[in-house]
Structures are given as C-alpha cells and as structure tokens.
Design a protein around this nucleic acid. Structure first.
Lengths: 125, 125
DNA sequence: ACTCTATTTTACCAATAGGTTAATTAATAA
DNA sequence: TTATTAATTAACCTATTGGTAAAATAGAGT
C-alpha cells in the first residue's frame, strides 16, 4: 500500500468491516468488545482493523481501566471530500445529460444529436 | 480485497498512480500510452492499474484501431459522495467546536465547560 | 509481406492484507 | 493472591497487490 495520507485513508475505507466500525462509532465512543460484537470474527482480527483505522487517523483511542475506547475522527474524511471536489462537476454533468435524455424521450425529437462521437485523437501527440 | 461496490471503489482510489490517472482523464479521453507518460513505470504496470479502475467502473474503454482510449466514469465517485453524507455533520461539528474555542480564547470566559467528559460506559452492556 | 506502434498476456517476484489459534499483558474483583 | 475480563502480540497461513521482463496479439502504413 502507498504511504501518502489519501491512499492510507482510502485503503482503510476499502473494507466493509472497517466501514461498519466507523458507522458504529457515529453513535459515540465504544470499546473493542462492543465494536467486535456484530462481526463473525475473532478479536485479533478486530484489533488489526482498528490499527488500520488508527494509522489512517480515522479513529483515536483513549484509556479507561482495562478498556481502550475508540472514537471517530472525521478529519481524513474531510480530506476525501475535498479531493472529491474536482470530480463533482462530472457527475452533475452526467445527471444533466440524463435529464436532457429524458426530455428527449418525452418530446421524441432531435434524437440524432446524441450519436455524435467525440474526436478521440485530439490528445495524442 | 472485499468484492462489494464501495470496497472496490475505495480500493481503486487507494493508489496515487490510479488517482493521477483519473485526474488526467478529467481533461478528456486518453490512450494508454498517453496515460503512462508521466509515470516511471512499465506499460504492463499501467495496464494493471487500468484494469483495477475498469473493474471499479471508474473508467470505461473503447476501441479505435490499435488504441484503447479510456474515459472517466464518475458514477462510483457519486456513490462515495453519498456514503460520505452520513459523516459530513461530524467534521462540520468539529469546525463548530473549533470556532467556539476560538471565540472563548477571545473572550477568555466560561473555559471550564470544555473539560466535561462524556460518560464512556453508557454503551456497554 | 514486412515493419512499426499500441497494448496485453504470461510468468515471475517480494511485500502486504486479512484471517486464524495460542500465548501474553494488564486491570478489576473476589 | 487468584481468577476474570479486555485487549494485544506472536506465529502462522493463504490470497492479493504492485511491480518486472519477455513474449504475444493486433492494427496501420509502406
């Protein structure tokens, strides 16, 4: 795995168990045993998932007697959101085209304009 | 790696080369050779990265003579954005707390309220 | 037909991921 | 001090990742 911040965050999020743990932490701080309960998995496996989340700084841990409670840290998610910003216009654009398409279906006109292909060669040197 | 849609998408994004390829495709369709140029990496490595992106449906490929041009498909990113929605309030909340803290620094009053700790045991059975 | 260019496939490699069981550490409770 | 509970560490396993070099495929141009 790459070691830059964004790669570490995306890697941590690329596992359904870890995403479920994050979701579970949205209702407040939880112990490892609490977090482990919903999963058909041994404790060491959960410990490992927590380490991945902790390295990604998506969770922070404290100490309370023999418990190591975890809580959510949303900061890396904010970074993801900022990274996404550059792509937002693309799915908004897609939606606009879908909207156009639906309008065309209704009016049943100008349907040939959609078959115009972009000239793929423009970017090649 | 897990095989659900969101895991596949996050996994594909967890590599700086693949993110750079996506960014490169924001300016339009590109051939494999064009995409490979910025990287100190062999062609087969790029081919593999493209396969990961293609399986994640982040890119789509067409055919033009011996070229296999790639273009961006933003749909999975929209899914990521929707998944992020549930966490947005958390970083907004953090910002609010920071804002409060800065206000307190200015007025230098009521600073003890911040030391109240949440009761960690509430969620344990 | 031959050659050049674009791209993929194959076979290989070392490192990492994600799980297990068994042993260990650490704090509480009796 | 002994037992119980919480959590981690160690050792191990298999599959996947991300890269390579070399060979194969495929279309275009001459």
């Amino acid at each position: 795995m790459s070691t830059d911040q964004l790669s570490t965050t995306f890697h941590a999020l690329a596992d359904p168990t870890r995403r479920a743990i994050l979701a579970s932490l949205t209702t407040g701080e939880k112990t490892v045993t609490d977090l482990a309960k919903p999963f058909d998995m041994t404790m060491p496996a959960i410990t490992k998932h927590l380490k991945v989340l902790e390295k990604a700084k998506l969770i922070e841990r404290s100490r309370d007697a023999q418990y190591r409670p975890c809580h959510l840290n949303p900061a890396p998610l904010k970074n993801v959101d900022e990274w996404m910003e550059q792509y937002r216009k693309f799915w908004e654009a897609s939606f606009d085209r879908l909207d156009d398409y639906l309008k065309q279906l209704k009016t049943k006109e100008k349907s040939d304009e959609n078959r115009k292909k972009p000239n793929r060669r423009n970017n090649r040197q």
